[in-house]
Design a protein around this nucleic acid. Sequence first.
DNA 1: ATTAAAATCACCCTAAAGTATGAGCCAAAA
DNA 2: TTTTGGCTCATACTTTAGGGTGATTTTAAT
Lengths: 154, 154
Amino acid sequence: MALHFWARNRSVLIYGASLAVLLFLMKWLEWRFMIIDHAVELYAGAIAIIFTSLGIWLAVKLTRPKTIIIEREVLVKSDDFVLNEPELGRLGLSKREMEVLQLMAEGLSNHQIADRLFVSLNTIKTHSSKVFEKLDVQRRTHAVDKARKLSLIP
Amino acid sequence: MALHFWARNRSVLIYGASLAVLLFLMKWLEWRFMIIDHAVELYAGAIAIIFTSLGIWLAVKLTRPKTIIIEREVLVKSDDFVLNEPELGRLGLSKREMEVLQLMAEGLSNHQIADRLFVSLNTIKTHSSKVFEKLDVQRRTHAVDKARKLSLIP
DNA sequence: ATTAAAATCACCCTAAAGTATGAGCCAAAA
DNA sequence: TTTTGGCTCATACTTTAGGGTGATTTTAAT
């Protein structure tokens, strides 16, 4: 219990002790003062130095280190294809959008995809636009490349 | 130049200025000392407080922020890629055409490829047309897919 | 030196892709 | 029941891609 208290408030306690020591020093210097008249500058200087150090020490001990967080992406290789589901969830690509993306990756035109999925060309355009939006790209080739790198498609 | 020096050593300069102010204060208190005899304790206490603060301030200003790098894993396809040279020879794709094909696979537009290779857009169009011809496709996405399947690109 | 392939660029035109916006339908969730 | 999200489709417009043709300049090989 006492040890715990010591551990938690060590910095403050040491600071207090230092203050006590200072008072002793002061009394001693008060006596010295009679002898060496201009010791007051030295006295003040010493106190300044000591307490500057103390302040620095306190700050270093008590302040949390300032941190700058830098996020860096690390590429991890995966041999055979496994869908990167967390990434898929993060991007929020729907089932249909994934279908379109896959057919895109096979080199089909929007028209061919429309025929394949029995929907209109406009529908495919809408889907692909959403895919580009979610993948943050503006071309199908870029979308395919990015999706591959994210293991969204084989 | 002078401004730069100020910016770089601001903390130290302010610290120096504070010391100068302290000396004035000291001289003033030296006079006060004659009147109020036991002001030395207050005097020392004030210096202690001021310089503790200064020390803390200095420490906060001068400590370098710690940088933490957080690494986020991103899955990427493994590249145990070996160029299918016989196929490349069979199709007769030139060096430049391969370059264009690779940049295409990275999702770049013709314009971007042109900029990258320091040639005109028309040149890239010519190259890509030849690539499509040789790969027997009519779209870049199809060309990329086919080239990948033939191990011409990673 | 001549030839052939490669690389460069231009112009014109069409096709395909992409953007923006709005809207209707339907099923699952709140 | 209302809301939400996904899927569908349309219209209008802009941008990019692709096809065809022709021409000049390097570069490499014969």
